[in-house]
């Protein structure tokens, strides 16, 4: 048992009962968001650095040419990876991605994939043989809670800035031939349940105190991904309320995407 964590859990639990949060936000208020694109301008085809409060995520997009999956011969390929590198938190260890990193990457991937943000059908060079592969890699630089939303914002912003290189004589030439074809903008919203209260965008201390977590990804009118986490439970009405809040929050945050 980590005594520091237990004390924070009690403190935050008491605050929440009074309707308050440790940083003074309302229960459905996001932290301040800042987005900077093209931060790896010379090597990555797309990149973005996102701050969600003190949480900092860097996302880089690399483009390469490869074979399509056999079941989708006329579509490009996208892959998402996440590394919880030790510079972000004393709890992160170097090495192969653990289950938290895998879950993070897969939830971010699902939102982007299922919303069809990237028009993969426009990334075909020759059907069944050669397609563009979009690699989205997330580097967590500072962990202060809610890595999923910060990572989705970073991935979406990096993809918005990304371009497709030239492909000539079976070689990739790292010069821009076109923008990466983008249609919808998916955004994720993560909620922490502490006792009976539901808090949007939890900071790390609130994550220590949370019983359950729910992430909802939308592109404005439709839902594309969800993931419940931790060992607590949600009532069906709570899930429906979270979905309603998500649609209204989407409009606010979408304005920040350039």
């Amino acid at each position: 048992m980590d005594i520091n964590r237990e004390l924070k859990r009690h403190f935050i639990g008491r605050l929440v009962q009074d309707g308050r949060r440790i940083d003074g936000r309302g229960f459905d208020e996001m932290r301040e968001i800042s987005i900077e694109q093209n931060v790896i301008p010379d090597k990555a085809e797309g990149s973005a650095f996102v701050k969600l409060g003190n949480t900092e995520v860097l996302c880089g997009v690399k483009m390469d040419v490869g074979e399509p999956f056999p079941d989708t011969p006329e579509e490009g390929v996208m892959m998402t990876g996440a590394e919880l590198v030790p510079i972000a938190s004393p709890e992160f260890e170097a090495g192969r991605p653990g289950e938290d990193a895998i879950e993070l990457a897969r939830v971010v991937d699902r939102g982007i994939r299922e919303s069809h943000m990237i028009s993969l059908d426009k990334l075909v060079i020759s059907p069944g043989e050669r397609v563009w592969m979009v690699f989205i890699d997330l580097h967590i630089l500072n962990h202060d809670g809610n890595l999923i939303d910060a990572s989705t914002l970073a991935a979406v912003s990096a993809l918005k800035s990304a371009w497709v290189p030239k492909f000539e004589d079976e070689k990739v030439i790292r010069e821009k031939s076109s923008d990466l074809p983008i249609s919808k903008i998916p955004l994720s919203f993560t909620y922490a349940k502490i006792d009976d209260a539901i808090l949007l965008d939890p900071i790390l201390d609130e994550e220590f105190a949370m019983d359950a977590r729910l992430t909802v990804t939308t592109s404005g009118t439709h839902l594309h991904a969800m993931q419940k986490g931790e060992t607590g439970a949600f009532k069906p009405e709570e899930v429906f309320n979270i979905v309603d809040t998500t649609f209204s929050k989407y409009k606010e945050v979408k304005k920040l995407i350039k």
Binding site: E114, L223, H224, A225, Q227, A233, P236, V243, F247
Partner: peptide, 16 residues
Amino acid sequence: SKDEIVLLQMDGDFTK
């Protein structure tokens, strides 16, 4: 017995 959701995932395209 408790009307509780303990696993919830979703992918695809759903309206509300």
